[in-house]
Design a protein around this nucleic acid. Structure first.
Lengths: 250, 250
DNA sequence: TCAATTTGTCTATTTATCTAGACAACTATA
DNA sequence: TATAGTTGTCTAGATAAATAGACAAATTGA
């Protein structure tokens, strides 16, 4: 018997949907990819059959399940994209081979005076100017991440214009003569997505995002980018590479 | 005006509590650490005052807020522990300096035949035996993570017994003559905690966990540990170190 | 001390969620 | 074709969440 908690602020059908989603991703139902029947699930979670039906309906809406009257409920294959993070992290290359259409959209941009935190992260003098980009990246049409990035304005004045054109930060760096760069640090946390993130990535309330805060530097160690990225946790997982081999290529 | 979604399976008070928690961690209310009044918040979220009160009550329960009649509602200082992950990751050292009492508890253990996945992760022959440990780690009495770890049984037969005694995997490795080891890979995802995780870490339904899947190897590159760890996302953030300097010490 | 502002408590009503049961519609198979 | 097992739809009622309003209790500052 699985457990659901009442009066927790999360409806029973939603708790059940979450548990089914987790069980699927753990491969717990994988015999013939058929879910147990509604009555069996109702017994298992100790709720009414209709409550289970609500959970299943929402998972069907998400594309996780497919329901067929008279036959049963079936698991729709679904795998998270694996997004590598290491010293040589590049978003556009990150998803190579896992998906067909990748695209970055520029939502908004501005040039501002750097806040103390951003100035420190980019090793700039207080009061220096920075270019800020707000972008959304999609894989096969589905939004997978939303980023806010800051670049030293003095060095990268044309950032926004070139992003519209090239759609990739790595490609832009090349136009500035930066053929190679390294990830200095990445900080990762997980949280419920804020409303603006929900709308930008077409998520529903309660959705989880992985937030990374990262600094990239050129080969001389000079920071060139500071960014905060929110990944849709049900569409992406982060794969940290600690190996040194990649550096041998530099 | 902030947004809350109705009929989403997440009660309004819970959505509001989540948003307030996020806003606090973003430092949005930081003037004098006093939250706006209940009526102001109700207007802001476009809900009834009593709904806001429910949200505040749950945050007070969590220790995020402190309410004083006639005066207002105040933010209780609260910071996430920063847990570093890099080639030299060791849990017991990870939280050094940020907290006083750290402790690991062994919940359960067994010796099993390795599944194909675990055998592959530990570079073992199919059918080899592995020791499995289920542990919960706490910082200052609060559970911060729950791990399942597998070790080659041939090499580490006494793992469970020594964990009871030493409470640290690094310390146990030393008793086996392994003075140094490195993190080979870490995979990170975020999800709603499964029920067993909720109870083990004293979390409430809907809580988020950061799940890491990691492999450690000895200095010759032979895998010695495969582990899955769930961190309570509201108590911990992961700090990835991509630098090479740590290796210079080896 | 008084007025304004804050949180605390109470009652009542509406709306959403969950339960319960009955039966229809569809599928697979003996 | 008959039957068992599945999902789909309907009605009704119980429980929980959210709204609405009134007033009490505590704090602050004029």
């Amino acid at each position: 018997m699985e457990f659901v908690e009442r009066r927790s602020g999360i409806s029973l059908w939603r708790q059940i949907a979450d548990q089914i989603r987790i069980a699927i991703s753990n491969g717990e139902f994988d015999q013939k990819s058929r879910l147990p029947g509604e009555l069996a699930l109702a017994k298992r979670f100790d709720v009414n059959r209709h409550t289970v039906r609500s959970a299943i309906a929402s998972l069907e809406q998400e594309g996780v399940l497919r329901v067929e009257q008279g036959r049963g409920t079936f698991i729709q294959l679904q795998q998270r994209l694996r997004y590598p993070i290491g010293r040589r992290t590049r978003f556009s290359e990150g998803l190579a081979g896992q998906t067909r259409a990748r695209k970055g959209f520029l939502k908004e941009h501005s040039t501002d005076v750097a806040s103390t935190k951003i100035a420190r992260s980019l090793s700039l003098e207080p009061g220096a100017k920075v270019v800020r980009l707000e972008t959304v990246s999609t894989a096969d049409g589905l939004p997978v991440s939303r980023s806010t990035s800051w670049f030293p304005a003095e060095r990268f004045a044309q950032m926004a214009a070139r992003y519209e054109e090239l759609g990739s930060v790595t490609a832009i760096f090349k136009t500035y003569g930066i053929m190679d760069y390294v990830r200095v640090s990445t900080r990762i946390s997980a949280l419920h997505a804020a409303p603006s993130i929900l709308t930008d990535m077409h998520l529903s309330p309660g959705a989880i995002v992985l937030r990374t805060e990262a600094i990239n530097a050129d080969t001389k160690g000079k920071p060139i980018e500071y960014s905060k990225t929110h990944f849709a946790a049900d569409r992406v997982e982060l794969d940290i590479d600690h190996s040194l081999s990649a550096d041998a290529m530099a």
